[in-house]
Amino acid sequence: MSMYGYLFRRLLGTIPVMLVVAVFIFLMLRLTPSDPAAIIAGDNATTEQVAQIRSQLGLNRPMIEQFFIWSGNVLTGDFGESFFFKKTVASLIGERIEPTLSLALFTILIAVLVAVPLGVLAAHRHGSWIDRIVMGFSVLGFSVPVFVVGYLLIYLFAVWLNWLPVQGYQRISEGVGGWVQRLILPSLTLSVIYIALIARMTRTSVLEVLSEDYIRTARAKGQNERTVLFRHALRNAAVPIVTVIGLGIALLIGGVVVTESVFTIPGLGRLTVDAVLARDYPTIQAVILLFSFVYVMINLAVDMLYTLLDPRIRY
């Protein structure tokens, strides 16, 4: 099968996946004990006022009718209007993409730049104190919750050393300096778990490759250790590392929810939390659909990358 054929089939395969996600999210929201109308109406509202709002939002219609109206609109690219903000969901998401994308990119960049060399170093010095420190950090990175790391970094760099702001986000259009400055702490916070994950995987993969004959051959030919490690070992160990990085990007979706809340970043994670707390159905549905789509696309991209990293892989 040609690469394009495979790509086409995979893209086609996303349609039933998205459909299942849509049905699942829609049902889950409707079946949970919640009522956006009661939340919107406020504490002083009477039962009658709540019922009026429910009717305006169309929540008194049969569930199946609500589903067909929503899915029909989604197919035409209309994700509806937020129950709360009086803005279209598309515009709400549009406003929130930049902060989340910035945070995700910074996080992955930091994670890869730190974790891959650490993992290679740990494999190279297998059994040494460096290896033990890296592995110890990995266990710690996995174990400590994101918000704890966040608070610790805030205390250290923002409150105590006064180097960085405590919270907030500055758009890139308002200045690159401020944009970077406000992304450092949240990205560092979020990257800790990915550094742990990627460093561990890199170490294991490189360690396995280092015992291969071709590595011994490279060394016997007199190549320096750096070339052996990064050109021969790392390249051959790349497939599982890329898989983990790909999974890591997908896992980021969960991480940004917490990190954006702690650091007050108005991104998609924050939007998701706010929408869930307020039972803003149209927004929740659209954001989950978007996240699912991104997840599917990342998996596809990782599969495509395999063929570049390992020419033996063919679809």
Binding site: Y151, V166, S261, V262, T264, D274
Partner: peptide, 18 residues
């Protein structure tokens, strides 16, 4: 009106003058 939902972060931001 800044939307800081985390109570501790609001305190940190006030103490830092943000």
């Amino acid at each position: 009106w800044r939307a800081i939902s985390d109570a501790q972060q609001a305190i940190n931001a006030l103490q830092k003058g943000e």
